[in-house]
Design a binder for these strands. Structure first.
Lengths: 220, 220
DNA sequence: CGCTGTCCGTCGGCTGGCCGACAGTTCGCT
DNA sequence: AGCGAACTGTCGGCCAGCCGACGGACAGCG
């Protein structure tokens, strides 16, 4: 139910408890890894619920991409938003046409609250991302990203140290933060030299000074 | 029904035809000019519909502000979003608690489509703003802002020239675009020297080469 | 094992645009 | 008319962070 997220949280909404009957009318579809499932131009407006797998939601400019978030099992999204949607792993998706979904909502108001919550969350997260881009420099964004990860995924060890699994490469992180591979790389190594964190292989992070990171993310 | 907008459109949704009964349960409130009506911290979650006046929706950083949009008569918004909301002119607002509104939605599904449309628009606009901030440089953003204004508010004159009323100062525009007064000022004057546009007083713009502006907004 | 492709670290150069400062302009008010 | 406040234009200094480039480190694979 949780997922890899933008600095703060994520530009998607998850329904922790899928209301009974929510899936009625949805059609399952398998999607191969690497498929570009939706693009901004698409006429096809759909509501989708992720059954299995991971999808990346992103925006694309001339020569850059900005990942908004990764969707995982249980997440809801709608293609009625000018974003790209790419399957990072093979996925099972539950799909429904937006129009049909609207009809469903009208006839069965019990689904409405869940949907509103999801949309509200989407919106709040989008606003938070705007805030990040507009007001915070890259170190602050990266620090917030890491503290967020730690809070959500980290496991505390002895001495205030946290173990944080990391399934994203430098490039992926950069894309989430709206910066470049190089900048992320040097910051991370700088912080490692400063003793704020350390790494073991490419998929594990140890956070030694979470408070320092919090401070870095708060200022600026 | 239209309003002063962000580069593309605006981070709000307007209900062109307020469905009959939508206003049931809303309470009117007068708000004096300059009032800070809502802040990110507020516990008070409300849905509001603007009856009269103008409100500015914005985010605030340490030393900067980013305006997301201006709300005008007919616009719907919800404070359930971490933004500031300030009355730029005296306003009449229709208010309703979010919880109560949710109940209303549940009992009267006919309002749902309107609400979904509004939320969807809000979201799409937020995404567009993110795109602008992440991918486009200031000249492109400003160009898009102006072409947008022209399309929505401009009146065509002879010879492909457009007259565009402008009720925003340099500073206000800068805040909408996430840049500074100085940068906007120099760009505008540069473009005036280039013959792309001209100005008459502080509230009127003449666009001479809309196509050039479009090109400036598209590239980068 | 080697080989090849992908990922990561680091450096220097370059620049968009922020910031502070200040002078000139316009507007509203009395 | 005349003053003060608010808005606008312009300049130079400065720096965060992008970009290109390149070498080293890990894989997976035959």
């Amino acid at each position: 139910m949780d997922s890899v997220d933008t600095p703060s949280q994520s530009l998607h909404g998850a329904v922790s408890d899928i209301p009974p009957g929510l899936l009625d009318g949805f059609v399952a579809q398998e999607v191969a890894r690497g498929t570009l499932f939706a693009t901004p131009g698409d006429a096809r407006d759909q509501v989708l619920i992720v059954g299995q797998g991971r999808l990346r939601v992103y925006l694309a400019g001339e020569s850059r991409e900005l990942s908004l978030s990764y969707l995982e099992a249980g997440d809801i999204y709608t293609t009625h938003t000018p974003t790209y949607l790419e399957a990072v792993t093979p996925c099972t998706l539950w799909l429904m046409d937006t129009r049909a979904f609207a009809r469903k909502l009208a006839s069965d108001p019990s689904v409405t609250p869940a949907m509103m919550r999801v949309l509200g969350r989407l919106l709040a997260n989008a606003v938070t991302l705007i805030e990040d881009l507009a007001f915070r420099d890259v170190p602050a964004r990266l620090a917030r990203f890491i503290t967020g990860l730690t809070e959500r995924r980290g496991r505390p060890l002895d001495g205030g140290i946290w173990l944080v699994p990391l399934e994203l490469g430098t490039e992926d992180i950069a894309s989430l933060l709206g910066t470049t591979r190089q900048t992320v790389s040097s910051l991370l190594n700088q912080w490692e030299r400063d003793g704020i964190l350390s790494r073991q292989g490419r998929r594990v992070l140890f956070i030694h000074a979470l408070d320092t990171l919090r401070r870095l993310g708060a200022e600026a």
